[in-house]
Write a protein that binds this DNA or RNA. Sequence first.
DNA 1: CAGTGACTTTGCTGCAACGCAAACAGATCG
DNA 2: CGATCTGTTTGCGTTGCAGCAAAGTCACTG
Lengths: 234, 234
Amino acid sequence: MSRLDRSLISGLAPFQGLTAVDLNRMVGQAHSLRIAKDEAVFEQEGEAHSFFLLLDGHVRVIRTTPDGQQVIVRYISPGELMGIAHALGRTTYPASAIAAVDCVVLAWPGRLWPEFAAAFPDFGANTYKMVGSRLQDAHTRVVEMSTEQVDRRVAHALLKLVNQTGRRMDEGVLIDFPISRQDIAEMTGTTLHTVSRLLTAWEEQGLVKSGRQKVTVTEPHRLLMLAEGRASKT
Amino acid sequence: MSRLDRSLISGLAPFQGLTAVDLNRMVGQAHSLRIAKDEAVFEQEGEAHSFFLLLDGHVRVIRTTPDGQQVIVRYISPGELMGIAHALGRTTYPASAIAAVDCVVLAWPGRLWPEFAAAFPDFGANTYKMVGSRLQDAHTRVVEMSTEQVDRRVAHALLKLVNQTGRRMDEGVLIDFPISRQDIAEMTGTTLHTVSRLLTAWEEQGLVKSGRQKVTVTEPHRLLMLAEGRASKT
DNA sequence: CAGTGACTTTGCTGCAACGCAAACAGATCG
DNA sequence: CGATCTGTTTGCGTTGCAGCAAAGTCACTG
């Protein structure tokens, strides 16, 4: 790990409140690795040997059902921890993590978790706070799946991605990694067909512009209106 | 708190690994209260003044959407913690908790959370492990909502309730608190009508027996088959 | 630069499940 | 013990969306 990396890391949410010394001690025990696009960082059911920090890129967390259907649990952005099965008292990963683009991650051996949690209480607290907010997210999603219809769910999903990883462009806000209709379908519990239809409809209304593995939201505000139900219809 | 209560409490999951002394110190700072059926233990958006341990009864955790629709997030059984917003870095409750029957709970002021977590590390660890498993549950539910159709979701919900709170009876396993069709619908993202139809169909097939606010699963095994997709159809 | 594979669009059809409405129990209570 | 209230059943029309099929488009590769 170079010094440069450390200064980048110090600002990240999981390490808020840690001293430079502590941070060094933690980072010193990690090794960094590159994960090529479409490769797995870790795999569902696999033994949880490590936990990770995403330094660069985007990672898709996926759960696969026994009959092979996939659901995208969430996208990980740079600066987030992932694969923290150990923190939750698990010995296997509950999902797979696939690089959506070429990624750089920091990996720690799982056995270090208890040591870290004990030695760096702020780190533990930050992590659990994050777990808490993921729990909220998951419940929100359950509520969404239970009460909203497909178009609103898709709209919400796009807005979430835009907020999380949006990049301002001339025409609007671009989702910063390749994302297919199929991916969006797996995030929202629908089919790629339906997503395609929705996107073309929205494109005609000028809400979004989309292409192959690419979505730009041109009118976030109007899309939000649609997501929240006060549809403008025009 | 009577001595009797403490001996009951010592065996509960959140307190595994604690010494009798520590347990006493914790319980000594709680006060117990009774919550009548249909009353709230805490309310969504309300300031998180306390966290709770359910000693007796059953509690429904509910999220209400802006437009008034309700979703049952989970049922709490005796021995479980609830309302632990503090542990997750929140200052308000993300959901409401309603007593499904008359309940007895132990309440601690929220400000004690950080003290407890620091002074009784095992308690903290147990709690976070539980949060972790709730996160898994929530994700499982998202996957279910995304990939399974209504009948299987309802079947799964019933089986979960049976496993969590089932009471063996002559005819089968009874869900141990009053539960309406509407409740089951709010657990599974459907309507009371559909639940009613499913239950009558299953009753004809001899899988369940149900009445007003009451469900008994007579053939858990066959219901599981149905939930998992290898339907017997007969 | 033609050829192949991956992603997307679009039309059509079918049905699971919702929504509405009305009738039907069981409980509860004065 | 009739009246009322809350929960349940059931029929029927409607529809959102999945499922299937086929054609179209873009990007890469040899």
